[in-house]
C-alpha cells in the first residue's frame, strides 16, 4: 500500500506528474491516492522530501 506521511509532504505535486496510472491527485495540501495505484513506487523515488512509501 502507498502511504503518505502527511507531516512530511510539502504538497508540491511532483509525484502526481510522474504517476503512470493517474492515481494521485493533489487537493491543496492533501494528496489523494486512488484505487488506480499499482504500487509501482515511482512516486516514492520522485518525492523531494521522502514523504511517500510503499508498505507491504
Amino acid at each position: 500500500m502507498l502511504t503518505v506521511n502527511r507531516y512530511k509532504c510539502c504538497y508540491c505535486g511532483a509525484c502526481v506528474g510522474a504517476c503512470p496510472t493517474a492515481a494521485l491527485e493533489l487537493v491543496e495540501t492533501w494528496l489523494e491516492v486512488s484505487l488506480e495505484c499499482k504500487e509501482c513506487g515511482i512516486c516514492t523515488k520522485i518525492c523531494p522530501v521522502g514523504a511517500l512509501e510503499v508498505k507491504a
Binding site: K45, I46, P48, V49, A51
Partner: peptide, 12 residues
C-alpha cells in the same frame, strides 16, 4: 535532481 538519479528524499 534528475528523477531517475534521485531517491526517496534525496533532494532535501
Amino acid at each position: 535532481v534528475q528523477g531517475s538519479k534521485s531517491g526517496s528524499g534525496m533532494p532535501i
